[in-house]
């Protein structure tokens, strides 16, 4: 690979979405699903949301400083206290692996590990995490080597669209560390905080069954067992 290959890396999915919004491509798609006036409003709103995503959210007069470790790297941020940990990761730190499914604690797509424990980052204010150690899906692999749970999800086809997958994998890593994987029913119960609209559940259970028997690498911070 030459240097110029590096410079012409393919656009990321985010770049693509930005271009899509900028070109107004959504307008041509939306009317199939929505009444035109509503579609227009939606489209404008979506473009607006995209704008905010690009420029850092103004912190506002009540801004609070917070220093936390994310995937092993110390980060200091000045944040409006309303910003959830999920939004801080996605919109401020460009760690878009953690997904926003419901934003209300009901789906698990936003699951990350904080001080070794899995939580829903959408219901957690970022400013409350002073001094905490956060691991997201981006922090699980060691260099080019995937985490065993990641490899097992690939091997067992633990996803279809992939939207719930970062949350499923973070949750599964914690589930294994907690020791809640003795049998399929236990795995199902202790993974029930992660919904999958594609219904990849049997394959997710198979992936966890495979991964649980393998040595779990120490993460950037050692996972502590909850029990």
């Amino acid at each position: 690979m030459t240097d110029s290959d590096f410079q012409s890396l393919p656009p990321t999915r985010r770049d693509f979405l930005r271009q899509l919004a900028a070109a107004g491509a959504a307008v041509t798609l939306a009317p199939y699903f929505l009444a035109p006036s509503f579609a227009e409003a939606r489209e404008t709103a979506a473009a607006g949301a995209m704008e905010t995503a690009l420029s850092p959210v103004p912190a506002g007069p009540e801004a609070v400083d917070v220093t936390l470790t994310i995937n092993g790297a110390k980060q200091t941020l000045k944040l409006d206290p309303r910003v959830s940990l999920l939004d801080a990761l996605r919109e401020r730190l460009n760690l878009t692996g953690s997904k926003k499914g419901c934003d209300h604690g009901q789906c698990g797509a936003c699951t990350v590990l904080v001080n070794g424990r899995r939580i829903n980052s959408c219901l957690s204010l970022a400013v409350t995490h002073e001094g905490d150690e956060v691991i997201t899906i981006e922090g699980l692999a060691q260099g080019n080597e995937l985490h065993p749970v990641q490899s097992a999800f690939i091997k067992h086809d633990g996803f279809q669209c992939g939207y719930c997958t970062p949350g499923q994998i973070c949750s599964a890593v914690a589930c294994i560390a907690e020791g809640h994987t003795k049998h399929d029913d236990e795995i199902r119960e202790w993974m029930s905080g992660n919904l999958c609209r594609c219904g990849a559940y049997p394959n997710i259970v198979a992936a966890i069954n495979e991964a649980k028997g393998q040595p779990q690498p120490a993460l950037k911070r050692q996972l502590s067992s909850v029990s």
Partner: peptide, 9 residues
């Protein structure tokens, strides 16, 4: 009640 993630919080 709830889910493992929510119970941790």
């Amino acid at each position: 009640g709830a889910s493992p993630q929510l119970r941790n919080m």
